[in-house]
Design a protein around this nucleic acid. Structure first.
Lengths: 349, 349
DNA sequence: TTGTAAGCGTTATCAA
DNA sequence: TTGATAACGCTTACAA
């Protein structure tokens, strides 16, 4: 079981060529006579040869590895990001190694150390907090790093994020247009700048229309969030609309309202964040802010790729716009029960 | 940017010791005087040294890498599996590299080749189809492999799966007990043996009670699945109960029923597969078969670990039992609208 | 306890 | 076009 797999040398011996030739056949860096190459390939296949990346990486000093660190793998948004990024990286011949910081600064620190020891060609990180981990400040000129989704503190790094204030703002504008003046904003974690921005963007829209918007912080876990929200509702009157500013808080809202048997769209309008199949798999599908995951992944990858190809220059700070997908969960305050523009989607510049 | 990071040699020089000492400090394999070790560590930190795994792996011929291949990262079930497995592996000092076969045999083949080139210590695979990939047959005595969730063809490999016929059987039994005799079984992909087993298990239960159970195959995509199911419903009368045998088909069912404005639990009872937060975040929470993800991950990991530690012996074929989480979506056929045992959970042996 | 040196599998240089 | 050889950073006998 511990036996080493066949090496380039075994192939060379069995094929009666030098190891250099075998290497050239597999790396394709130097021309090899087609028949010889074919012969080598056949022999390699027979002995079960596979190139050893550890050895290649060591020799070249380069690896085609991109490491990625996300705060939580339980969050579908990050999963989508990983999936989309992996697909693009693969096309360009890179492999992605993902680590999970479990929303914990100490785990984050350890995982970064582990990821760096892969000698990755580049790194994509969604930090746990607003603060960039120190380790990354130290390696920032050893390898390209793209900070995604967050990064209030990522001065000098390439960043890709959405226009958070605007994203929640369009949701709030939609509610205001439907006549809502009393909106509850449900946030996961207010210590994160993007979340604060979303809350601010929404609140300002509501207040600009003469309404009131309160914010409640319920944490990232859907079940606990539902309980927290329930406690808030115990102490306060039901608002006419509730806005969740993350996918997980949207779930918290739905869980809580379901337990209380409220009729969504009827008793209270709901707007969620991120758009997943389960949001529309209901009698009253949920109006939601859609993050352009594809664009986000594309932007991260092209940014990283440019740096991998040696492009220097000032850090880029990409900011992407979100859409609102209007469905039946948000209705005119009149409570006529008449759904408005059920499948209309607002495309933004 | 292409500069090599500091090596063990730079640390040795800067600290005035030999490279062997530096190595021993970091590997901890051989004792080093505490003060010296501390000094080396300090110097290493100052020069920004990180151990190069490529070099270690090459030298030792061992890597603490477990590679994992799943058919789709869009499926929450596999995500949960990855997450749980990663946590356990990490505790034992292993890193997990995940690849996505995108439900495509050709991609699967390529990804396996890529994964093997990491020279992993072990491998966990959920094959795309019932057939074990040839490459794995070839390397089966080079490294331990655990086949998870599927593996009808995995003769001679360690396998971990659930009792599929029973899992769907308990769901069907529950429906039968509620008086349902006309059940529609919604399957993703009948070319997979575990799915066929689930259908069989459910069908047999219904038929044993003198009922009829038809099966419809709708594919793994929730949206397309909903459309496929809609076509079936166009041609057939609404059954009294619908059973989804995967998480994705459950979503298809809910999407389709929502579009037709059916009242779940009222017009038709629904039992889903796998248990996710969105299943209970609704007015009528969904009764569902719960796969014991924790036990599955635990079983995979302990099986793999034993092999990593050199344990030989006959392949193990672990089969785990599922629970049924009864909620309001499944009701007595009388249509009294009276929910039964809303939060009762049946624990199985 | 610490140091010296060989070698892991690969790529890159240089010579044939 | 092909081959011999050195070197990448690390671990591990073995020597000091």
């Amino acid at each position: 079981m511990a036996k080493r797999p066949p090496s380039i040398k075994q192939v060379a011996d069995a094929a009666g060529v030098s190891i250099a030739t075998v290497s050239n056949v597999f790396s394709g860096k130097k021309a090899v006579t087609p028949e010889l190459a074919e012969h080598v390939r056949a022999v390699a296949k027979k002995v079960g040869y596979r190139v050893n990346r550890a050895a290649s990486n060591l020799r070249t000093g380069r690896s085609r590895i991109i490491t990625m660190l996300v705060p939580a793998l339980s969050d579908p948004f990050f999963i989508s990001l990983v999936t989309e990024l992996e697909r693009r990286a693969q096309v360009d011949g890179y492999d992605i190694i993902v680590a999970n910081a479990q929303d914990d600064l100490e785990v984050e620190r350890r995982r970064i150390a582990a990821l760096l020891s892969w000698q990755p060609a580049g790194m994509v990180i969604v930090p746990c907090t607003d603060k960039m981990p120190d380790q990354l400040l130290e390696v920032r000129n050893e390898l390209p790093i793209v900070v995604a989704d967050r990064g209030a503190d990522a001065e000098g790094f390439d960043t890709v994020r959405i226009d958070n204030a605007d994203a929640a703002g369009i949701a709030a504008k939609h509610l205001v247009e439907l006549g809502h003046r009393n909106v509850l904003i449900v946030a996961s974690n207010l210590s994160l700048e993007p979340i604060r921005e979303r809350c601010r963007g929404a609140r300002e829209r509501v207040e600009a229309a003469g309404g009131t918007a309160e914010t409640v912080e319920v944490g990232p876990d859907p079940q606990k969030g539902a309980e927290e929200l329930a406690r808030w509702l115990d102490r306060n009157a039901l608002p006419s609309a509730i806005l969740g500013v993350t996918d997980m808080t949207t779930l918290s809202i739905l869980t809580c309202l379901a337990e209380r048997k409220y009729e969504i769209g009827e008793d209270v309008s709901v707007v969620g964040f991120d758009d997943y199949p389960w949001m529309s798999a209901r009698r009253t599908p949920i109006t939601a802010v859609q993050q352009p995951i594809d664009e986000i992944a594309e932007s991260i990858w092209t940014t990283l790729k440019k740096r991998l190809e040696g492009e220097t220059g000032a850090p880029v700070a990409e900011v992407l716009q979100c859409d609102l997908k209007v469905r039946a969960s948000s209705r005119r305050i009149s409570k006529s029960g008449d759904p408005e523009g059920v499948t209309e989607s607002r495309r933004r510049a």
